Computed example of a mutant assay.
Amino acid sequence: MRRDDLLADFGEWVIAPLMQLYKAMIPPDTDAVSFLVNLQQTHERILRLKDPSAQAPNITVKRCGKGLVEICYASSRNMGAMIPGAVKGIARWFHEELSLLASEPGEQGAVHFVFQFSANEMAARQVV
């Protein structure tokens, strides 16, 4: 298995247990895009609870339109391949559909992604 595939699979797998563990920190009316927009702040807060000296990777998330987000991951850890899997896990947690529209390497190991989120019609019908 390629390293990037392993990281993507791990990113997808690890989200559900982490969301379950930290769900008290997630406002009840949050959707996947809102969660992602606040991801860096939430990630840093959780890391500081466990280890005040820990350094979180730099994850920048920008809304680019309805359900459209751009994510830039930059870290010396070189684990950007984990992002598509983790975002897929987040979409699943919030019962949303996800499409990866673009992925490209940036400078100094950074990676940029563009994702499109949409409501999962089956999940929306079950909630009503």
Rank of each mutant, 00 (worst) to 15 (best):
P17L: 05
E70R: 05
L68W: 05
P17N: 07
P105Q: 09
P28Q: 03
M1Q: 13
D5A: 13
A56H: 03
V127G: 09
R45A: 15
E97V: 08
C64T: 12
K23L: 05
L39H: 12
V33Q: 04
H43S: 15
N58H: 12
C64L: 14
K62F: 09
R2K: 13
V87C: 01
V33L: 00
V111C: 10
V127T: 11
V61R: 01
A24Q: 13
E121H: 09
E70S: 10
I83V: 15
L101S: 11
L101A: 12
A110V: 03
F35K: 09
A54M: 02
G85A: 01
Q40I: 03
G89I: 00
E107W: 01
F117E: 08
R125V: 12
L21W: 10
D9A: 15
A81H: 04
S53K: 02
R2F: 12
S99W: 08
P84N: 04
I46A: 08
A54R: 02
M122S: 14
L36E: 08
P17T: 07
I90G: 01
C64M: 14
P27V: 05
F10I: 14
S76Y: 02
E97A: 10
K50P: 00
N78H: 05
P57S: 09
L7V: 08
M82A: 15
R45I: 09
L7C: 05
A74R: 13
R2M: 12
P28C: 02
V127E: 13
V69R: 00
